[in-house]
């Protein structure tokens, strides 16, 4: 029980105009676990992550963090709110929303400044992070002038500088080239080996095995259709097809047209 960091039971959520986004979600996430959330566009992954980060609250059901229910009342308690924000970091899907300051440096230090960390400590962490992520040369730049890969690295740095115990990432590798994808995945694996809980929503099936001990598949009905180990989920072809995670691949062998489901499990393309 003590090991459970997030516990969601029968959670429902709808956006204004009664557009359902989550339809009865039950999830338990343990400390130090790597969790991947996969599903087609609009299956509720981002809503689920925002709920874990206490940015939106359940219409029905319960979301607990270390035994305390996450609702507006909890976040009205300044002490809890501060503690939660220090312990849970969220990397948004859209880096242009996350990086809102005029310079990269100001963006990275924004979080720890709001959370009241000591300035010397912030400076020390800043130095460590920019070296580790190789973004020192970007500090004076404005976020709008960065490439998508640089933006994602800066967004991750802006969250890691808080040194949260739980790191929630929404599509951290979307639109990235293979090398930058690998760098970010390696960084997440290292963070997890240092004890951090990593929760990632993604479409990239080729990274799922690396970033998960447990995979949750979100379906069109905005609920979890299956959960389990990465290898079991990735071998369940009907499930992946049903949820738009594989596509039909068509190519020619000499004069014969050959059609089969196509999985992107790695960058070398030999896992068809």
């Amino acid at each position: 029980m003590d090991n459970i960091i997030f516990e969601l039971s029968n959670v429902y959520f709808s956006y204004p105009a009664k557009i359902p986004a989550l339809n009865g979600i039950d999830v338990k996430i343990n400390k130090g676990q790597k969790v991947a959330v996969i599903g087609a566009n609009g299956s509720g992954k981002s809503t689920f992550l925002q709920m874990l980060n206490g940015l939106i609250f359940a219409d029905k059901g319960k979301v607990n963090f270390c035994g305390r229910q996450l609702d507006e009342k909890a976040f009205n308690d300044g002490k809890f709110s501060l503690d939660f924000r220090r312990r849970v970091g969220f990397v948004f899907q859209n880096p242009d929303a996350q990086l809102f300051c005029p310079t990269v440096e100001e963006d990275i230090v924004f979080g720890p400044l709001q959370l009241g960390l000591d300035k010397n400590q912030i400076q020390k962490r800043l130095e460590e992070l920019i070296t580790a992520l190789n973004i020192k040369h970007l500090l004076d730049r404005s976020p709008h002038r960065l490439s998508i890969g640089e933006k994602r690295k800066v967004a991750i740095a802006a969250v890691l500088i808080i040194d949260p115990q739980v790191l929630i990432l929404d599509e951290p590798t979307a639109g990235l080239d293979p090398l930058t994808t690998r760098q970010i995945i390696d960084f997440l694996i290292e963070a997890n080996s240092n004890g951090k809980t990593i929760i990632t929503a993604t479409h990239d099936l080729h990274i799922v095995e690396d970033i998960s001990d447990m995979v949750y598949v979100f379906g069109r009905e905005k609920k979890i259709v299956k959960s389990g180990l990465a290898k079991d989920i990735l071998n369940d072809l009907p499930l992946l097809q049903e949820n738009n995670l594989v596509h039909i691949h068509r190519h020619k062998h000499e004069d014969t047209v050959h059609i089969h489901p196509h999985l992107h499990l790695d960058h070398h393309g030999d896992n068809h």
């Binding site: 300044g78 709110s81 948004f92 929303a97 979080g111 709001q114």
Partner: peptide, 10 residues
């Protein structure tokens, strides 16, 4: 605004 809240803006 959510990104600001998420990083401790109060």
């Amino acid at each position: 605004y959510k990104a600001m809240l998420s990083r401790g803006y109060r």
